[in-house]
């Protein structure tokens, strides 16, 4: 990364600046290479082999062909998209509305804020235990209450029923990940100069107009990046689905990452697993390139 002199930096001393850059980027670049670049390259390499961890045989792209032509690939892809889009959009909506509420300095706002950040900080393992106690047909209290109140006659096995399984997994996911959008957007809301609202009010703008013309533009960058990374993470989400349904019943919640896992460790077909991971990577990368082009999420509203 070469640096060029910029107008803004003419105030600072050059060596100090360089030092700061070096101190920042060198360790990061090193970690990043070690933990991401090399392993991804390695995994992509494995995707060209049959049985890559033991007696590797080079097979070119045939793992990819096999995966792409598999009859269920499109179903798994659809499940992944459905899960990723629904959970991403829902957690953004939940997070955004809560951030707006908490930003209102209402009574009990502190408590609400603490409660809202909390689920995101809990490990998935714990989240699954908790939700099992809500949705499970045997030990789940939701079923217990619904039966007691006479809403349903028999407990519903939410994670075992084709119509419910995806929704149940999605609700569990939104519970955990809604707070992600919440605390990022809240930080951003805090950064909006209150004078802007004051001035708007003086000029006679309504609440809605102030929201539309001040709040939303200030949150744009954050919302765009949340949609992007949350979308990527949810598309690649494995643990929460596997721990609650293992991809079932039938293939109702089998997303591509679940399939990757099955290929890697139940098959075991590690070449196929890495090839599928590669396909997912290229799919996401394609979407991301378009996304970056269209929205330029790194551009913030200018001050």
């Amino acid at each position: 990364m070469s640096t060029v002199q910029s107008v803004k930096s003419s105030f600072g001393k050059l060596d100090e600046r360089r030092l700061l850059l070096l101190a920042t980027f060198v360790p990061f670049a090193a970690f990043f290479t070690l933990v991401w670049v090399i392993p991804i390259g390695y995994a992509l390499g494995m995707s060209l082999f049959q049985n890559p961890t033991a007696d590797a045989v080079f097979v070119g792209l045939s793992n990819y062909v096999e995966i792409l032509t598999g009859e269920e690939f499109l179903l798994f892809l659809w499940n992944s998209v459905l899960y990723a889009v629904s959970t991403t959009v829902l957690s953004l909506l939940v997070g955004l509305s809560l951030a707006l509420v908490v930003n209102q300095k209402i009574r009990g706002g502190n408590v609400l804020r603490t409660m809202m950040i909390f689920p995101y900080l809990l490990p998935t393992l714990v989240v699954i235990f908790i939700w099992k106690f809500i949705l499970d047909p045997n030990i789940g209290v939701l079923n217990q209450w619904l039966v007691e109140w006479g809403v349903i006659a028999e407990p519903i096995a939410f994670f075992s029923t084709i119509q419910w399984a995806m929704a149940a997994v999605a609700v569990t996911s939104v519970w955990k990940f809604g707070s992600f959008a919440f605390f990022i957007l809240l930080a951003r809301l805090q950064a909006i100069d209150p004078n802007l609202y004051e001035r708007a009010r003086v000029e006679g703008a309504s609440t809605w107009q102030a929201f539309r013309d001040i709040t939303i533009p200030h949150l744009r960058g954050a919302i765009l990046i949340i949609l992007l990374v949350r979308g990527i993470w949810m598309f690649n989400k494995f643990d929460i689905i596997y721990l609650s349904t293992r991809g079932g019943p039938l293939n109702a919640t089998t997303t591509l990452p679940i399939r990757v896992y099955e290929l890697a460790f139940n098959g075991p077909n590690f070449g196929g697993a890495t090839a599928l991971a590669g396909i997912m990577f290229f799919l996401l990368a394609g979407v991301a390139v378009v996304y970056f082009k269209v929205f330029e999420p790194e551009k913030e509203v200018a001050h």
Partner: peptide, 19 residues
């Protein structure tokens, strides 16, 4: 840098262990 998040972490366990 963000593209790193696009690779399914499930299959990275083996390369990471090797490294």
């Amino acid at each position: 840098v963000l593209f790193a998040y696009m690779f399914s972490p499930i299959v990275l366990a083996i390369p990471l262990y090797v490294i």
